[in-house]
Amino acid sequence: MYTQGLDQKDKPAGTPQGAETPGQVEAFQDRIDAEDKIEAKDWMPEAYRRTLIRQISQHAHSEIIGMQPEGNWLTRAPTLKRKAILLAKIQDEAGHGLYLYSAAETLGVSRAQMVTDLLSGKAKYSSIFNYPALTWADIGAIGWLVDGAAIMNQIPLCRCSYGPYSRAMIRICKEESFHQRQGFDILVALCNGTDEQKAMAQDALDRWWWPSLMMFGPSDNESKHSAQSMAWKIKRFTNDELRQKFIDVTVPQAEFLGLKVPDDELEFDEKTGHYRHGEIDWQEFLDVLAGNGPCNRQRMAKRRKAHEDGAWVREAARVYAEKHAAKDAA
């Protein structure tokens, strides 16, 4: 799971809407400030609705595309137990995509529309899944780092002001509690294993560390939507706050594994109690987001093919149901 502060071209938040009176907007903000939850059919500003659709559908798409890098190792998992655990985790991701699509649907957008937007490239998904899973250790690194970063993002979303999103996130967080652990557990086994296995683990950390930090999105002064999302209580912490928190908890875990975080400037600051880290390569982030990551084309091609190959099946089921509904009614 995987939300990311992806800034997309969108009408600026707060675009004047004919039907929105200042009184309505103010009453809405009062409800938010009072920590009241907004439900599907409640009045809401159009910009709030659009922001949520964008964020929730991106989040759903990320779950679905996120099945691919891990799925890449399902058939090669080294033990039957690991295979079953990985499959259960990937299945959870499909389920979480489904919960999230459902939450977005309450805002008046159909799943079909969201899928169309994903396949046309209009909608985005988390940039992290455009990196390749090259060795079995990557499955460990994805669970530990990618799910770890995701959890940092997601836990505050359980308190999001929009009821259906918040409920979906509560369910997701509960179910995902094992995901990060299974990843770390894979790495523990590798780091206690042969030299080759340990090298495999270090290589995975080297490749996944920076992309994981990018998962929190652009830094606060670059993030267009942050302030409004905070005011609406869709977001509770800024990108940089969450990223710092992630680094602070993850670095000691890397030390436990005996692995080196690939950042020469990483240093613990006694005064602040936080780690200072090196500069993130935001150009890489922008490139990947723009479609030029190592796997963008491959991920989208696979999703498109699955969708197109399934069209006759979806249609057959629909036609069968219609035929039999007509028969039953007759």
């Binding site: 489904l98 459902s102 799943r111 979906a168 369910r171 979806r314 089921a317 039999h324 509904a325």
Partner: peptide, 22 residues
């Protein structure tokens, strides 16, 4: 939560496979 299905039986199965995995 919710799911999509072509018919009632498919809906029950999908609900089972989606919402009672644990």
């Amino acid at each position: 939560g919710s799911i999509h299905a072509a018919d009632d039986q498919m809906a029950l199965d999908a609900a089972r496979d989606t919402y009672t995995r644990r």
